[in-house]
Write a protein that binds this DNA or RNA. Structure first.
Lengths: 233, 233
DNA sequence: TTATCTTTGTGTTATAAAACACAATTACAA
DNA sequence: TTGTAATTGTGTTTTATAACACAAAGATAA
């Protein structure tokens, strides 16, 4: 974890940012009160029980957010890419983190001080509404996941995860290869299954021509079929 | 669904309300712009796909909020009692409802117009923060549920549900009987299991002296043991 | 370069929980 | 009040998936 003293303006200035509604002066406050840090692949950014210090924005790299369940079994509940936020739930709920975040690629994150953020929310109604809307979407996602992870069968769960990975990270230039390279274990932890079953089911999908696999590179060959497997459950 | 033209001030004025931070004038606006409605036990308050018209507050009765999953199988994701809100996620996310709400007792609900609410959020920072905090808590709950419903075994899931019912609705005067009377099917749909298994496992708990059952009346005899079953998974 | 650890892959066994089938009871409506 | 439907309860069978065991390939470090 190396401190860097550059400004990663993108976290605040990118076109999809909730901070777009801020005035130039307000943005300036944020830019002044943020710190940037570098994390190596595999590093823990925060873990269950830690106290949140501020709003974390991912400037570079990818992150998995997970909870540990029965017997330490890991369930991935979110994945983040630039310029998404992580750990904001605990920040606003007031307590400590109830999930952990680990870099799945080398990452740069920047942290905005909590006090500054709260002050901005209090004074800028549009920012408030943006944050409320973000939470509402995230809650909808979480509720949907609860149902599909409990009700769908292995094939449906894995298919849904692959679609989720596409929705989140998109494809490479070939318009087919998922732009994220996860271990089979991570794919399993995302899909609520054992690593063996993730491996096995990925192989089955490949033999059915739905995807093709080359190490951690997953190519979606038949998006429609994948969607159908996901929908069937 | 009978229209009633009384004012159910409690939704806005009760001591735990997020609206407590409003000025008297702001409260007056809310009171003027709300409508109250009566629902019989079993009535649908809203269902998946409906468009939210305003913020729904439960003034009397109890409500289950659920999603339909694979093959129409119902998963209860929330339960509400006075003076809790329901359906606010869709309201703020902007789309239609992705869950349904059904009265499990005769209910009175009041609805605050969306526009008024948005206007208040825009101008009152403390209200914004209160709503953001409510969302953050709810999201934490949902994430935790995802993990326990997928990872815990039947006994653990049922035990957790009973504890949840206690946390939400409390005990009767005897300090042991759950203050909510659900069908075995609802208990099953809350705990992600079949009705048969809910019935069976409740019986087992009773024979172990953890609870005692009399129809839909569930008495918690050994709260510590119940917590242990839940924790073990 | 070799040794060690991690990840991937595959076959087999064990088991938790669903699915099914059918009483018995209770609620409800005609 | 009698018939019908819904709910509760229990035993049996089936099945999806975890658990286990081990081999092969790759990555990592000494």
């Amino acid at each position: 974890m190396v401190q860097k003293n550059f400004k990663c303006d993108n976290c605040i200035e990118n076109k999809d940012s909730v901070f777009n509604v801020l005035t130039p002066q307000e943005k300036e406050q944020l830019l002044k009160s943020h710190t940037c840090t570098f994390f190596k692949k595999g590093d823990i950014i925060f873990k269950e029980g830690d106290r949140p210090s501020g709003l974390i924005c991912l400037s570079e790299g990818k992150v998995k957010v997970f909870k540990e369940g029965v017997g330490g079994r890991e369930q991935i509940i979110r994945m983040a890419k630039p310029f998404g936020f992580i750990g904001y739930r605990a920040l606003f709920a007031g307590g400590n983190y109830i999930s952990s975040a680990v870099a799945i690629e080398d990452c740069t994150i920047c942290v905005v001080e909590k006090d500054i953020l709260i002050r901005l929310i209090r004074t800028n109604g549009d920012l408030s509404l943006g944050i409320i809307q973000a939470f509402a979407s995230e809650l909808g996602f979480s509720n949907s996941r609860t149902v599909t992870l409990t009700q769908k069968h292995i094939r449906g769960r894995l298919a849904e995860s692959l679609i989720f990975l596409h929705d989140t990270f998109g494809y490479e230039q070939d318009d087919a290869t998922l732009k994220v390279y996860l271990s089979r274990e991570d794919i399993a932890n995302l899909s609520n299954m054992t690593t063996s079953n993730a491996i096995r089911t990925l192989s089955t999908f490949a033999s059915e021509g739905v995807i093709s696999i080359d190490g951690r590179k997953i190519k979606v060959m038949d998006h429609y079929k994948l969607q159908r497997i996901s929908d069937l459950g």
